[in-house]
Design a protein around this nucleic acid. Structure first.
Lengths: 381, 381
DNA sequence: AGAGTTGGTGGGAACGTGCCCACTAGATGG
DNA sequence: CCATCTAGTGGGCACGTTCCCACCAACTCT
């Protein structure tokens, strides 16, 4: 960055320059003895929005009647309703959701928590797709989406803090690790929580995930069908159910094909591209004769493709590669990636709808949904 | 494979044990028509969180003193402060942010608005990077991030509605079109607003963007240095400043190199992969002898690479390609993409910090920031 | 010693909404 | 014709917080 990248606009004619910004952390401390409210003396109050009281006065009814009209109660005469609606239109009244939230104890917002430390939004397409699914499902309702990218422990604490402040009605968790305390914390706090993925099959929390085991098995069967026999696996983290179950599905298929467990080639990665490259290097050292790789994610497969190419192996002639997810990334690798399609966006939509249901009625039994996968064959196998 | 894409995990029928689990959840669930408030007569209220009043009583002080301690005022004796802090710790008190917001008129949340209709989050890496930058900048503060993916007009209306409800203290807009009314709407509503990108150079709203013109010019000069002379441009939408300025920078460099404007090869795309492929097809028809392409985004460049390959052109031997952004996508294309690096994540961080400043002090003059770009040469040129 | 000046303190009054409940006027029933 | 109902209405209160202001005790300064 060079020196003069910053310049300021010519001065606004607002009389603001007398106030200088304080360096203090506390925004309230300096407003202390400063003066009266800015919008107080003005008779043309530019900022003050009409309240339910204003509307009531204008329509010649009580506050309650306005509230009834706004909330669609039947117990309002046609005449009163029309008067209220007219007043609302005239004044441009919009209910204050904060005030409403104070009494209803609902914020009409849900949090979507994504651990950013391990898999960066933007390089791992999974998260973007989940976000889109969630957002689409929420769009119909009046529910807002709070995105929380959690990088480290400090931000985790802040998250629980924020949750304790009751800023959201429920929480969506993506990419949960087995020994993560956050889910149980949320559960015991009585906050509706739904997972994308699960910690184990009988997870006490509601979850939606894809058929990782079946998908992985299908991928390996495909490689076997192609005549491959030295099939390696670059697995995901084993403290996540998604990592374990994809590995298990893979092993299952190999055993069924008569390949004994001791001959299985496994290296554990961390769902990152670089981790996968490293895992691939170690696999090639241990078993230079391998002829196929199943990667537990597209992103890992992409890294593996790069590593194989760097080591002079041709794909798919020398080595077949299969990924998992069928993100758009799979179409852009060289060569385009054979992969197991999972309905990522649908997962997002489903967890959102599930959460809304549980917020509506917390006594509902927990939901456990496993969505089917499908093998998409491209040029890497 | 099967038509039945959904199945439920075993254990569904054990609703008995599940009810047991849910019993501890939210007692407010069925309080609707049931009777009096549950926590009213009870002296041992099981769920109701401690309020500032509870803490005050426990510490033997008044509400105001508790409020002062919580908000870090200096006007509290050491003794009182300790008593309050002890009470807070004992009771596990956390301030209710909604109640606080009602009186402070601050929600401590900002909205990040991303038009999803035109460029899908997940395929266009730009948005993910901006989100990450924003999120990181907000992490230090107590500000929450509301993500709004806007698909269609209905969702736009809903957005303005939500803004009118004062659910956020400010708004970040990404990817604004020239004739979009939303920015002016927000401005006239008096809601602090900052743009990633701008509508024009002297945009009345605060903005942060990258040096699109300079970056594009540098890209074209690079192509000229490589000996290319028939340089085509696949431009972005011309109703966006980012689309126009990248095209202008490109034309500028060509003119400077002595190539008359009438010989410039330009096709306008829409920042999507498919749109770029189409534009590329038309360019190849019009000028089969072109030897270089400057694309206004990495994603477009990726599409162009696919199209060139499909038509049997080799990159970079026959045609050089340069993109814009240096997203991680640029490293995964075939071949890896030469591109103009823009500090996307920094843009996100900067708009967030700018917005926070303007929320703090709305009288501040508007900020106009243009961040430098840098050419990253890889194998496509 | 009285008058001012501090550092602390807490009660009341908002903030804008939903809901309980007491109330009215007109309709219905006997 | 009175008693009873019912649709409709609005005032009061509560939600949990911050802020204004009135107050108090202990100093300091004439």
């Amino acid at each position: 960055m060079s020196g003069d990248t910053t310049r300021e606009a010519p001065g606004r004619e607002r009389s603001g320059s007398r106030e200088q910004r304080t360096a203090g952390r506390e925004p309230r401390s300096d407003s202390r003895g400063q003066g009266p409210r800015l919008d107080r003396g003005q008779n043309t109050a530019p900022d003050s929005r009409p309240t339910i009281k204003t509307v009531a006065a204008r329509a010649g009814v009580g506050r309650t009647t306005v509230s009834r009209v706004v909330n669609g109660s039947e117990l309002v005469s046609e005449k009163a309703r029309e008067a209220v609606l007219a007043a609302i239109a005239e004044l441009g009244y919009v209910p204050n959701s904060v005030a409403r939230g104070l009494v209803t104890r609902r914020t009409n917002a849900v949090a979507l928590v994504i651990p950013e430390s391990e898999s960066r939004l933007g390089s791992e397409p999974y998260f973007s797709a989940v976000i889109r699914g969630v957002s689409a499902a929420l769009a119909d309702t009046r529910t807002q989406l709070q995105l929380m990218l959690v990088r480290d422990q400090a931000e985790r604490d802040q998250l629980t803090q924020s949750v304790a402040e009751r800023r959201v009605d429920g929480v969506l968790l993506v990419s949960v690790h087995e020994h993560d305390v956050l889910p149980s914390l949320l559960e015991s706090a009585g906050l509706p929580t739904v997972l994308a993925g699960r910690r184990r099959e009988d997870d006490p929390l509601s979850y939606v995930c894809s058929d990782n085991r079946g998908g992985a098995a299908a991928a390996v069967r495909h490689l076997l069908d192609r005549g491959r026999r030295r099939i390696a696996t670059v697995a995901g983290p084993q403290d996540m159910e998604v990592g374990r179950s994809r590995l298990h599905g893979c092993q299952e298929a190999l055993v069924q094909a008569g390949i004994p467990a001791r001959d299985h080639l496994v290296a554990v990665g961390d769902f990152t591209e670089e981790g996968a490259r490293e895992a691939m290097r170690s696999l090639l050292e241990r078993a230079p004769d391998l002829d196929a790789v199943f990667a537990a994610s597209d992103l890992m497969a992409a890294g593996i493709l790069l590593e194989l190419r760097a080591q002079g192996r041709r794909v798919p002639q020398d080595v077949s590669v299969v990924g998992f997810e069928d993100s758009y990334l799979a179409r852009h690798t060289n060569p385009p990636l054979t992969t197991v399609r999972q309905p990522t966006e649908e997962i997002g939509g489903t967890i959102a709808r599930t959460l809304l249901r549980e917020i509506e009625n917390p006594a509902l039994p927990r939901t456990r949904l496993v969505l089917d996968t499908e093998l998409v064959v491209r040029e890497s196998s």
